[in-house]
Amino acid sequence: MPSIKELAKRKEKFVSGHRLCPGCGAGVVARLVMLAIDKPVVVGCATGCLEVSSTIFPYTSWDTPFIHSAFENVAATISGVESAYKALKKQGKIDKDIVFVAFGGDGGTYDIGLQSLSGAAERGHRMLYVCYNNQAYMNTGIQRSSATPKGASTTTSPAGKVIPGKIQFSKDIMSIMIAHRIPYVAQTIPGRWNDIVNKVEKAINTDGFSFINVLSPCRLGWPHKPELAMEITRLAVDTCFWPLYEVIDGKYKLNYKPKEKKPITEWLKIQARFAHLLKPGNEHIVEEIQKEIDRRWEDLLRKCETS
């Protein structure tokens, strides 16, 4: 694993000039993922904030070959690119070792793109799929996705007089991907550069399909103070809302255990999407959220111990 100094010296493949909001997590995720890959890499990106902000013609932030085709199909698109590479390599028309990375938002991953993701994972294409997960459809104006946490107010799960934001807990995409029995699945945050870089390195050195779920703050949709973007992801880890772990060939490994598990209110209170939950009368919802976080955390600890 490279030191931060070494990383800083690497040639950037995701460069400045993009038009993501200041304080957006997606740019940090893209930059760190690309820095971690010290090989020729082809990138695919699903429609969403990252893609529309980084490729406004005639400009591009990608100093590496890049393709966007549509919203729900980045895994299938990169399946095609990777297969072309295999075919041309077999014929001796190409000799480089090339890495393939697909970026999808949570909408493009958990919802509309789930089928194409599942298909590509099952077929075992050699690619790294990175879900930059800002927990809603941000590009179209903060609509709920199945990754949106319970209680969050979005424009299609608004907190109202009778409904207090999103009713459901988020979909457990990690278990879904682990159930595909792919060789590498991990969850990380951009707020710990070494964790994400390490995981990307492992993923691209895995022979097969790998999946990394990255929490990616959205200063407009959560919303939070832009300068808190990285801090907020570390808080997600310390409240056990977003544990850092990996599953290598089916074996669970916890990468970080908070010394002191913080209450979920710490994470809720700095984001306006949860503001209504902290008002009198909604205590039971916060309690339910805390309970579900505890349950998922215990479940993860058990899996890490027994696998």
Binding site: I67, S69, T77, S79, G80, V81, S83, A84, A87, L88
Partner: peptide, 8 residues
């Protein structure tokens, strides 16, 4: 689309 864009 991916394959053709890759030159196949």
């Amino acid at each position: 689309i991916g394959a053709s864009a890759a030159g196949a």
